[in-house]
């Protein structure tokens, strides 16, 4: 073993090293980090391997009905988990379309959150499910709602030396869910994505939706969701809903599509996803 790679046995030991070794980075699956190291985009002084941290492993249903996914849980295990039921199925749907089998055998939800690629498939679903991100650092533990976790392009609420310990999705009313990923080919990062779930209360059904890859963080508008309540079958109401999300978009131009193309897709992808879910609901 070299001094370059550390294998902490507890979260406290891991964050202790991350805080005390300048230039140290945590490594989870390595799928994004090793690619960046190979391209010489990042040159860490030390890698703190989170693999052995028991606290970061696996999915569990909490006493209050919330679902906790440890940061080291791989895409493969999320895609195959029977614990994801009801609205939480959204995470399974997203995990199943990340990259390809070998990458899903490596990558983790904690690494995806730490990397915060605007096109990462978990971000929209976590936002759509009102998830909270559990964080640990040398000065202790805290929890940040997904709505406040991403601060900018590849920038998160994690302070230097802090790590993601888990993502926690609160219990939610059951309702149909859909994760729609628009990509050039299967396995590519999303050009745009849409995480959608239907939620019904006494006042009618509405859609909870988060659009991915159209800005540094997923787009969601709770206000627009309330305006849409009861109007899922009304094309104009759905179009207004799409326009409301589009208004907050800030997409990039890249090989996957121009910013303009992404903007145009927002209302269309939303409308088609809503049509698919409401259609399926009726049947």
């Amino acid at each position: 073993m070299s001094a370059f790679v550390r294998h902490p046995a507890s979260v406290e030991e891991a964050v202790g090293w991350l805080a005390s070794i300048p230039g140290a980075l945590p490594i989870s699956g390595g799928a994004s980090l090793m690619a960046m190291i190979n391209a010489r985009l990042v040159e860490p002084s030390c890698l703190v391997n989170l693999e052995r941290l028991e606290e970061l492993r696996g999915l569990s249903l909490q006493a209050d009905g919330s679902l906790r996914i440890g940061a080291m849980t791989r895409h493969r295990d999320i895609a195959g988990s029977a614990l994801l039921v009801g609205a939480h199925v959204l995470l399974r749907q997203a995990a199943a379309v990340i990259a390809n089998r070998p990458v899903r055998n490596m990558g983790t939800i904690g690494g995806a959150l730490g990397h915060a690629d605007p096109a990462a498939d978990y971000l929209g679903p976590l936002r759509c499910l009102d998830a909270e991100i559990e964080i640990a650092g040398r000065s202790g533990r805290r929890s940040v709602p997904m709505s406040q976790f991403i601060l900018g392009w590849y920038e998160t609420a994690l302070a230097p030396g802090e790590i993601v310990v888990a993502a926690r999705a609160p219990p939610l009313p059951a309702g149909a869910t859909l994760y729609r990923k628009v990509a050039r080919v299967s396995g590519d990062f999303a050009t745009i994505s849409c995480a959608l779930r239907l939620e019904e209360d006494g006042r009618g059904t509405t859609a909870r939706a988060a659009i991915g890859a159209c800005g540094p963080a997923p787009l969601r508008s709770e206000t627009a969701e309330e305006l849409l309540r009861g109007g899922l079958g009304d094309a104009e109401a759905v179009a207004r809903f799409g326009a409301a999300l589009q208004a907050h978009a800030d997409p990039i131009d890249d090989v996957r599509g121009s910013a303009d193309y992404r903007l145009k897709l927002i209302p269309r992808v939303l409308a088609s996803a809503i049509a698919e879910l409401t259609g399926a609901d009726r049947g």
Binding site: A39, R40, L41, G152, W153, Y154, P216, D250, I252, D253, D254, V255, A259
Partner: peptide, 17 residues
């Protein structure tokens, strides 16, 4: 060079910021 690999789309956002 290496930074070009990260993609121009994101570089543009950075320059704008």
């Amino acid at each position: 060079g290496r930074l070009g690999k990260f993609g121009l789309g994101i570089m543009r956002k950075k320059v704008e910021q």
